[in-house]
Computed example of a mutant assay.
Amino acid sequence: MAYKYKEVADGIRADIKSGKYVPGELMPDQNQIAKNYNTTRITVHKALQLLIVEGMVYSKRGSGTYVRKDYISDDKNGKSGEVSPIDKPLGATLTNQGKKVTSKVLELSARIPTKRESEQLIIPATEPVYVIRRVRYVNDVIFAYEHTIMPTSITTLTKKVLEGSIYGHLLKDNLSIEGSHRRVSADAASQEDIETGIAEKVGEPVLVINQLSYLADGQPFEISESRFPYKTSSITADITL
């Protein structure tokens, strides 16, 4: 028998896919949803968190829960939404425990976000964001090139933090990471990929992961693109039915 929160999530998911709730629309508040499903607000909160991780909805503090503006239903593209989580958002350091993980910091700066960045991160257009570029190494072998955008209000970052684990730093700040919406694709290597050591020549395959990551309260805290050498990269997904 399915848990109640999964039953609620299934119902809301069906409503979104059927078009009852359209992209960008504010959904009923949690108390109303709890009443509709004859359950508790805590159960509804857990159901919505599941849908946040799936990339269907997002939560905005003080406003409510919205259907993601970039969500496309199965009926429109034949896919189960635009993005889906792959494994857990642990980052390179925690994923490669027991190995030597280091970083070469290429950039740590701050600027005003673009319109799309402010919409994705659900922050005011005037709130600064960090721009982070670094190359990650595992046992002294190039693992990935990361380009990350993060609100400066989330935490204080330094070059020393970037040389280690950003996610580990967030955990020390008592910030709990809930999940990520990830898009995995292949790309042809660019000149920048050669300069960062991800590829040996222009045009060879590169594994790319774009993701938007969320804290436990549903607040987006990171937009990132990671590029991986095709010869040494693979993805593992644990599927539970």
Rank of each mutant, 00 (worst) to 15 (best):
R133L: 07
E54W: 00
T65I: 14
K60V: 09
S190R: 14
I52H: 01
I86M: 07
Y5V: 01
S226Y: 03
S118C: 03
I194A: 04
D29M: 12
A186V: 15
V101L: 04
P124Q: 05
L26I: 11
T43D: 06
A92E: 09
T43K: 03
S84K: 08
I154L: 12
K4F: 00
H45I: 00
V131G: 04
R227P: 02
K88R: 09
T39K: 10
L175I: 10
V101I: 09
L215F: 04
T196W: 08
G98Y: 01
D187T: 12
E117T: 06
K115L: 07
K88V: 10
A47G: 04
Y5P: 04
P23F: 08
F143W: 09
M27L: 15
K79C: 05
S185F: 11
L108I: 14
A125V: 04
A125E: 11
I112T: 14
S80P: 07
R227E: 08
T93Y: 04
T114C: 13
E54C: 00
S73R: 07
Y5N: 13
G91C: 02
V53M: 00
E25D: 13
G197T: 12
G91H: 07
K231W: 14
G24N: 08
F221R: 08
L212H: 05
A237V: 15
E195R: 15
E25R: 11
A125G: 01
E117L: 07
V44W: 03
F228P: 11
S63P: 00
I52D: 02
P151H: 10
Q97G: 00
V184I: 14
E146Y: 02
I177M: 10
I132C: 11
L157G: 03
A14D: 12
I223R: 09
L51N: 01
R133Y: 11
Y137H: 14
A110S: 15
Q219K: 11
P229T: 14
T102H: 12
I16Q: 04
L48R: 01
S153Q: 08
Y230I: 15
P28C: 07
I142V: 15
K4M: 06
G98S: 01
E107A: 15
I12C: 06
H45P: 00
L90T: 06
E7T: 10
P113L: 04
L108P: 14
T155S: 10
S233A: 15
T95R: 06
Y37A: 07
H169V: 01
A2S: 05
K35G: 04
E54S: 03
G168P: 00
A14S: 10
K99Y: 06
S59E: 06
A2I: 06
S190V: 11
K231V: 14
G11M: 01
N77V: 03
R116M: 11
H147Y: 06
Y71F: 15
V161D: 05
R61E: 14
V105F: 10
R227V: 02
K69F: 12
N210S: 06
K60C: 04
K4E: 07
R134E: 09
P85Y: 01
G11A: 14
K99F: 05
